[in-house]
Design a protein around this nucleic acid. Structure first.
Lengths: 170, 170
DNA sequence: ATGAAAGCTCAACTGAGGTTGAGATCAAGC
DNA sequence: GCTTGATCTCAACCTCAGTTGAGCTTTCAT
């Protein structure tokens, strides 16, 4: 093949659209690995172009760098994801997207009811009352709508969540 | 009405599910206002339960605290949003939700093609190449995906792009 | 052989949305 | 009056995903 199967960080950057600093950052996080020249400069494999692209895509789909690192760590020894890996991973990702869309749709529905009724007035507004309900019966602290970023709670009248979200823990 | 039309910060916290520290933070950002006792403790109006709830909802719908502050600032003197205000604001929010759902759906479609083809192989994978502005609401490499159209290097095995853009500039 | 371009490390900074801790004061029930 | 729990301020710290800058070294084309 090419004599230059190793590429410098700048080339990897240019080919993926990622900043050089970001690639160094990814390396520090264990997302990519580099060989070094005698002089100490990084040299990447061509396959790392794909690896970085994978990172970008996964990121777009909502995974944190840590999750991506986990995903990559599950592959045999530094391998860049192949078709089978991808099928598994992407099926996973699809489920995430579905969940996000569903959550958003629930919210939209609630919101529509709310626009329609124009209420905003406590007794009736379901969006508002999602939280309020909590307090007016039984006075426990910490009720809330969604308990996860990006996720709106299913606001059903009966449902109690008991989810404590304001602080992620001590 | 009640003799206790004023509530302490702890109660506001309990009734909204927000941490006390977060409420102080919101006050610092101008999102809520508090009266003070002679001793210097904050006392909130009951209406602030609604105000905080509004903040929470708007936040869930993707507004930053600054945007929420702007929204609230457009209301007459510290008023908690009323029906007309709400109609305007919520119509706005709905558009945001729609946009997010649409973006997510585009991504999902791309992903489906990708699961199907199993490619992952640069030339064909639209997810890889098209790097849609999909779910970009959330952290991510800001200078890249979508930002400068045409700037993403075609991730191909062959040619060199020369488009070196390691840093977005000062 | 040389000079520009690219690379190196390390520390500090960003910004959003808060949390944590120290040390002091306030409010209220007994 | 005392004690206990809630609250106060202020500063420092956290996470995430990187960026920026200083100061220095390596690589490569001419």
């Amino acid at each position: 093949m090419h004599r230059t199967d190793l590429i410098a960080i700048g080339e990897l950057a240019a080919r993926t659209g990622v900043a050089v600093s970001a690639i160094r950052f990814y390396e520090a996080k264990g997302l990519v690995e580099a060989l070094r020249t005698r002089g100490g400069q990084r040299r990447f494999l061509r396959a790392d172009i794909r690896r970085v692209s994978f990172i970008l895509i996964a990121q777009q789909l909502g995974l944190s760098l840590e999750e991506i690192a986990d995903e990559l760590a599950r592959l045999p020894a530094g391998r860049t994801p192949n078709a089978a890996d991808w099928a598994r991973i992407s099926t996973d990702l699809r489920a995430r997207i579905d969940a996000r869309i569903a959550a958003l749709e629930r919210t939209r529905k609630l919101l529509d009811q709310c626009i329609g009724c124009g209420c905003l007035s406590l007794k009736k507004c379901r969006l508002y009352n999602a939280q309020d309900k909590a307090a007016q019966r039984g006075a426990g602290p910490r009720y809330l709508l969604g308990d996860r970023p990006g996720e709106i709670a299913e606001v059903s009248d009966g449902g109690k969540t008991g989810a404590s979200r304001p602080s992620p823990g001590p």
